[in-house]
Design a protein around this nucleic acid. Structure first.
Length: 894
RNA sequence: GGGCGCUUAGCUCAGGGGGAGAGCACUUCCUUGACGCGGAAGGGGUCAGAGGUUCAAAUCCUCUAGCGCCCACCA
């Protein structure tokens, strides 16, 4: 067994361990007939991506769940891969071209796509190697990509199927257009932001005056769109305007004559109650235009410059056009006023350019009928969200779902498998490429657009398992167990996976539990973002704290309710925690003899019974906590157990027996006792390392492999060692031992406090006198004196029910026992009086409160009996304490 | 406009009807053979505010204030 260095060094350990896991093929999982599996599909990171804090958190969560499952012996597989990320990847390659002064059109579609593949080959594995650095136990032997040939086939099948069923259709609609990416976006790819802007009031002259009225004033936030106005709408019941309905106005600047129409959509209370209607540039206006048969004039080109329809404004950028239109109107005396106005402006979620509502031909998925079963699956509890409140968000969106615009005017992605025949106008969706028209045999051309990246991502849980082939993997691993993700892709991805997963798998859901994890914000509470420079690089964190330190630090901060305002000090604690475990293990291993024989743990002493009982409690808390995804609680329980119970107390409590058994001329009994302690130390460490392994895989594995375990308990890797079974460990529970050690800790702590107060050197032995309440307590103290002696440095003691407080003694009450420590010449009586007085006051106040409660009839009548009993016992204890503190005060007064 | 979450120690946060907790920071002491990435002992909080329910409220309900987020066809 190699020597353990004094400090845990993650860098020396992590890479070789990961190598050994890969070599051992522990990440891989094939079909095991007759055994129920557990699987997770990783949310595929973009090939363009590199690890950020959100990934770090999400993948730690998944790895924790996966590693626990694997250790229980269940066939477990974490399916990994990347997403082709249409817009993001295309942007990267376009940037590369731009550096050479080229655009994608310069190189052509075919070459451009080739370059995307090259880019992927070069950069696409970055994030995968970062996942490995984190220790994520994905099945890397079977990595997927949303543009793999098989995956492409799956996408085409889905498209063709929905097309043939009429669930995908082509339509000319107002969609969200990003002029920079030059593509349509779905509604949920638009991020709205409230911006300070203006509400311009424009005067539109009537062609013929109606009575005294010769104009109408409209209000708009986008004056440049007036170039495309084809009517003005007012509410039919708005008396201000009823006389004008049917009249014509002359559109300023262009001179076009357009009608005034009545439409229920108009809100008379907003603006002037008259609305300029631009059917080609606003979804509402589109509807109004449809209702009144108004033409749709598109005044904007794909790059958001004004088209020829804009007459003199042709060629201007939309914002230049806005400025010009406003100033020209003002000059013409047609600008009535300009109000400040806060309004919500849509931005592209990829490049943050302001979105233009734009009329164009696009493909849509009819989501309503598809959503219904997916809603039902959550209602039935077949899919469960954690935390549960996200289900309401899901319902709200799904029940109000709108058609999904799935076509994108990009080159990188799944090209829409629709073939047009220019000769006969036939339109065919086909899983295979067509060269000729199925109707007339004429030449066909494929739709040039590609599909929304999310259209392919939605197939991830089954396309990665070989669908549409009915593979053994698909049969076995689908549905997956858990889907863990950030909340911002709840609609973009999660909901759509439920929809398509159920549709294409005979109604079978894609995953049972959905974990919506917290969002990671930086210390200032701002979203971590690379472009804002507000992010922290997980690789830097791993450099400083080790992969385990980062993982555990994140787990400590993960709770169901609150987002994470990233606290780096938690990572420092976690790194220290790893080091603590390392050194505790070093202690254990240093105290295991060459000829140590592994064996069962044994509660030979109260201390043994106590730690075994605590261990049983830990196992059950960790197991239960992981099954309910309470990561923060589990992390704290592990931390607390290892540090505060195992290291601070059990190891200390074990030292005397270890030493006695190793001493020269030790008796056989002492030697046997030493062996028992060794076995207990090894057992507790072994079990606790197993429980900690999912969160801290590296340090636990490194230590665990050094443990002297029996062949049955051992294996080549902790990764595949047996997960502690809480119900089997429950036999170790021992309430009496827990109570007993609890009291011992109280007394030891009290004595140490006296030591600290009077600066007594730890080496200085002290005499302690106990006044107990019963003979039982005396026997208990005598029995445990060895431990108290060792931990508190007591050289001699007496215990009795009639002990009297010695003169010049520090005194306190702990665990129902009065403790006196004679300190001739050392006690500062004034200070002691103040301290005891303060304690007395506090105790009295507490007692008074409790007495009031206990004399309250309502309480006695209605509270649970065990609560009343507990409070009575507590009051009795407090009364004793008050009495002894009073006695002490009297003593100190002399 | 609708909805959700948060407000607890100097900081970051757990807890969630019956004893106010952790980590970090702070104070004092300790070169104790597992660990100074450590040990021991401490100080520090009207659990945002106001009402209500209850024998009992940090915890449940209502309202208020502040912060953050999501949804919505807010010309």
């Amino acid at each position: 067994m190699s020597e353990m260095p004094k400090a845990y060094d993650p860098k020396a350990v992590e890479a070789p361990l990961f190598e050994s896991w890969t070599a051992g093929r522990y990440f891989e999982q094939s079909v095991v007939e007759g055994v129920s599996p557990f699987s997770i599909v990783i949310p595929p990171p973009n090939v363009t991506g590199s690890l950020h804090m959100g990934h770090a958190l999400n993948n730690t969560i998944q790895d924790v769940v996966i590693r626990r499952s694997r250790m229980t012996g269940r066939p477990t597989r974490w399916i990994v891969g990347t997403d082709h990320a249409g817009i993001a990847t295309q942007n990267k390659v376009e940037q590369k071209l731009a550096a050479e002064g080229l655009s994608r059109r310069d190189v052509g579609r075919e070459r451009f796509i080739e370059m995307c593949w090259e880019w992927r080959a070069e950069h696409g594995s970055t994030i995968i190697s970062q996942l490995k650095a984190m220790g994520c136990s994905c099945d890397y032997s079977d990595e997927h990509f949303t543009m793999d040939p098989g995956y492409q086939q799956a996408v085409r099948k889905v498209f063709v199927d929905w097309f043939n069923k009429g669930l995908i259709y082509r339509g000319k609609r107002i969609i969200n257009w990003c002029p920079r990416c030059s593509t349509a976006l779905s509604d949920i790819e638009v991020e709205h932001e409230d911006l300070d802007s203006h509400l311009w009031h424009l005067r539109y002259p009537l062609k013929e005056p109606v009575g005294a009225v010769d104009h109408v004033v409209v209000a708009t936030t986008r004056p440049e769109t007036m170039l495309g106005d084809t009517c003005v709408a007012v509410h039919p019941d708005d008396e201000r305007y009823t006389a004008l309905i049917g009249s014509m106005v002359v559109l300023p600047l262009l001179g076009r004559e357009i009608p005034i129409v009545a439409d229920e959509h108009v809100d008379p209370a907003f603006g002037t109650g008259a609305v300029k209607v631009t059917p080609a540039h606003d979804p509402n206006d589109f509807e109004i235009g449809e209702r009144h048969g108004c033409p749709k004039i598109n005044v904007m080109a794909a790059d958001a410059t004004i088209t020829a329809e804009g007459g003199p404004y042709e060629g201007l950028d939309r914002y230049e056009a806005r400025t010009r239109v406003v100033s020209d109107l003002e000059e013409a005396g047609l600008l009535v006023k300009t109000d400040d106005h806060l309004h919500s402006v849509g931005h592209c979620y990829r490049c943050h350019t302001v979105i233009e509502p734009w009329l164009s031909d696009q493909w849509f998925v009819d989501m309503k009928p598809l959503a219904a079963p997916a809603i039902q699956a959550v209602r039935d509890g077949r899919v469960v969200f954690h935390p549960k409140r996200w289900e309401n968000v899901y319902y709200h969106w799904m029940e109000n779902i709108r058609d999904w615009c799935v076509s994108r005017q990009l080159w990188w992605g799944h090209q829409i498998p629709v073939f047009y025949c220019d000769a006969c106008g036939e339109m065919t969706a086909s899983e295979t490429d067509l060269t000729s028209c199925s109707a007339c045999g004429g030449e066909v051309r494929q739709d040039p657009d590609v599909l929304d990246t999310w259209f392919s991502s939605q197939l991830w849980p089954f396309a990665t398992l070989g669908w549409p082939e009915r593979t053994p993997e698909l049969d076995y691993f689908y549905p997956t167990g858990v889907l863990s993700t950030a909340r911002d892709i709840l609609f973009l991805w999660v909901a759509r996976m439920v929809v398509s997963g159920m549709y294409f798998n005979d109604g079978e859901i894609p995953f049972r539990d959905v974990i919506i994890h917290p969002t990671v914000f930086n210390a200032e509470g701002r979203r971590m973002s690379k472009s804002l420079g507000t992010g922290i690089d997980p690789l830097d964190l791993m450099e400083h704290y080790g992969a385990d330190g980062m993982r555990f630090g994140l787990m400590l901060q993960t709770t169901g309710n609150q987002d994470i305002k990233f606290a780096e000090d938690k990572l420092a604690s976690s790194r220290n925690f790893a080091n603590k475990i390392w050194n505790a293990s070093r202690f254990v291993l240093m105290n295991v003899d060459e000829d140590y024989v592994p064996g069962e743990p044994e509660a030979a002493t109260v201390a043994d019974a106590w730690i075994l009982s605590r261990l049983a409690g830990l196992a059950s808390a960790v197991d239960e906590g992981l099954l309910t995804y309470q990561f923060g609680e589990v992390a704290r329980a592990l931390y607390d157990f290892f540090w505060n119970e195992f290291c601070d107390w059990y190891i200390e409590l074990s030292k005397s027996r270890l030493a006695a058994g190793a001493a020269e001329g030790a008796s056989d009994e002492a030697k046997a006792a030493r062996l028992t302690v060794q076995r207990n130390l090894v057992f507790v460490l072994d079990t606790a390392l197993r429980l900690l392994h999912p969160m801290m895989p590296f340090v636990t594995e490194e230590i665990w492999r050094r443990l002297p375990l029996s062949p049955e308990a051992s294996s080549d890797s902790l990764m595949v060692a047996a997960w502690p079974d809480p119900s089997a460990l429950a036999r170790l529970a021992d309430e009496g031992a827990e109570r007993s050690i609890g009291r011992l800790i109280e007394i030891v702590t009290g004595v140490r406090a006296v030591r600290a107060r009077y600066s007594l050197s730890p080496k200085q032995g002290i005499r302690v006198e106990f006044k107990t309440a019963s003979e039982g307590d005396n026997r208990w103290l005598e029995a445990e004196f060895g431990l108290i002696h060792q931990l508190a440095g007591i050289s001699e003691f007496i215990a009795g029910v009639d002990t009297v407080q010695p003169a010049h003694a520090a005194a306190f009450v702990a665990a129902g026992v009065e403790v006196y420590i004679p300190l001739e010449g050392l006690v500062d009586f004034a200070a002691e009086r103040t301290r005891v007085g303060g304690e007395l006051e506090g105790t009295r106040a507490e007692l008074e409160k409790l007495d009031r409660k206990l004399s309250n009839e309502g309480f006695l009548a209605k509270a649970a009996p065990e609560i009343v009993e507990k409070d009575r016992a507590k009051a009795a204890g407090l009364r004793d304490t008050v009495a002894s503190l009073q006695a002490q005060l009297l003593e100190l007064a002399e």
